[in-house]
């Protein structure tokens, strides 16, 4: 309940801020890259196929062939669920936009007639965090988290995940931070 309430609030704020942003212009607009998710999807499908193939090549691995069949079915179901989850994430990523305006950073997506937008005013930013896993480094992407330093369960209030050229995003935001924060 409170989550949807917060979303509504942020959505309204985002619309207001979006209107302001439109007036004063967007500083940066980008989308997350699909490469890591595609790689994970390929890994899940390939891993599932390898395990199922191994089980079928060794039908008596778990005793009776039917037991091995149960295990193979279990792996197939889990692989399908994993692939379904990643495909959903891919779809969401294609609908996601990361926006930097002169006054705020914003993550937004539209999904099945539902719009979600989360915005953080630059005045509330306390620090920026750039993270890069090995795979992200290979693809030249990374994640930029915007921290407010307020009390919350998670310190990162907003994150641009899997964003191309993350240094550019960080630099762009840093250049626009109020002097006492920067």
């Amino acid at each position: 309940m409170s989550q949807s309430h917060t979303d509504t609030q942020t959505e309204r704020n985002a619309n207001e801020a979006g209107a302001t942003g439109a007036r004063s212009g967007l500083v940066l607009e980008t989308q997350p890259t699909l490469k890591p998710t595609l790689l994970s999807l390929a890994g899940v499908i390939l891993g599932g196929l390898v395990v199922v193939g191994f089980l079928f090549l060794n039908p008596t691995l778990l005793g009776a062939a039917e037991r091995t069949e149960i295990a193979a079915n279990l792996v197939v179901i889990l692989t399908a669920i994993g692939a379904g989850r990643l495909l959903t994430r891919l779809y969401v990523l294609t609908k996601t936009r990361y926006v930097v305006t002169p006054n705020a950073v914003r993550r937004e997506y539209s999904l099945l007639y539902k719009t979600f937008s989360r915005e953080l005013p630059l005045a509330r930013l306390r620090s920026l965090e750039l993270r890069r896993s090995r795979i992200e480094a290979i693809f030249g992407i990374g994640s930029v988290a915007f921290l407010t330093g307020s009390v919350a369960q998670s310190p990162a209030h907003l994150e641009f995940a899997n964003v191309p050229r993350p240094e550019r995003v960080r630099r762009t935001v840093r250049d626009r931070l109020p002097r006492d924060t920067a």
């Binding site: 039917e66 069949e69 149960i70 295990a71 079915n73 279990l74 197939v76 179901i77």
Partner: peptide, 8 residues
């Protein structure tokens, strides 16, 4: 075997 896999 499928239903037992679902159970698993």
């Amino acid at each position: 075997t499928t239903i037992l896999a679902v159970l698993g």
